[in-house]
């Protein structure tokens, strides 16, 4: 199977500080890949190369290739609008816009030029159904999105992404602000979404990685130490450092 995303010799610097070092990995389609590792090891940075959000920060330099469907997205002539439509991102803190629930969901499609009301409504319904919010919110579409609960907000953010029909979902600690119950619901949602999307999730929580992911990558100080099937990483890690981390010796 050809990988959905292939990383070749990826390096990234924030000014003079190297945050990613010679990373090579392949991510398979319609699977959940978890990226784990201690705080500051470069997980978020890694995730943000896939949709090139790092470029908002001044002084960032990237070297290497990232092939998504065989196209190198780090090419200078990559259309960021097209890329970000294809590679969506869910943030750590749910960040719905201060607009109505409906406007939040149709934001993406509208930005990409869709104006047909009927179609937009269809998309809104479909997206909300995909994140299992439709029944809860179908009568509240005009309510202000910031009045939702934290979990609902995060689901809404996922729905907002689904509305632009991405291929790949990037999630940066999507559950770190949620309570355990909400977390397990969002995890359930991820498993469901796996049928249609390639998901990469960054998490601090090793149980979560073990629970939801098919593949896992372990990072340390900007390096990808080990990458493989989740069960292998957690049951028979090849690298001593991986073993130390998953057995809790790194904190």
């Amino acid at each position: 199977m050809t990988p959905k995303i292939k990383i070749e010799n990826l390096n990234l610097w924030y000014g003079s500080f190297q945050a990613l070092k010679e990373i090579n990995a392949a991510f398979l389609e319609k699977r959940i890949t978890a990226i784990i590792g201690p705080s500051g090891c470069g997980k978020s940075t890694m995730l943000r190369v896939f949709n090139r959000m790092n470029e908002m920060i001044e002084g960032v330099r990237t070297k290497g290739n990232i092939l998504i469907d065989k196209e190198n997205i780090l090419d200078a002539d990559t259309d960021l609008v097209v890329l970000r439509k294809k590679v969506g991102m869910v943030f750590q803190r749910p960040n719905p816009f201060p607009l109505s629930i409906y406007e939040n969901i149709v934001f993406g499609p509208k930005v990409h030029g869709l104006n047909n009301r009927y179609e937009l409504e269809q998309i809104a319904e479909h997206s909300l159904r995909s994140v299992l919010l439709w029944d809860e919110l179908k009568d509240k579409l005009n309510h202000f999105a910031l009045s939702l609960s934290l979990e609902q907000k995060q689901r809404l953010c996922i729905a907002r992404l689904i509305a632009v029909k991405p291929d790949i979902l990037l999630m940066d600690e999507p559950c770190s602000t949620l309570d355990p119950q909400a977390t397990s619901k969002v995890e359930e949602l991820m498993r469901e979404l796996k049928n249609n999307y390639t998901i990469i999730i960054v998490t601090h929580n090793m149980q979560q990685a073990a629970r939801v992911s098919d593949d896992t990558g372990f990072m340390l100080l900007g390096e990808l130490i080990e990458f493989g099937k989740t069960e292998d990483i957690f049951t028979k890690p090849k690298d001593k450092r991986t073993e130390d981390y998953i057995t809790g010796r790194y904190g």
């Binding site: 959000m53 890329l83 970000r84 439509k85 969506g88 719905p96 934001f107 993406g108 930005v111 990409h112």
Partner: peptide, 9 residues
């Protein structure tokens, strides 16, 4: 960030 990540200019 949210808007840009959705492909907004």
């Amino acid at each position: 960030e949210g808007a840009l990540a959705l492909g907004a200019t």
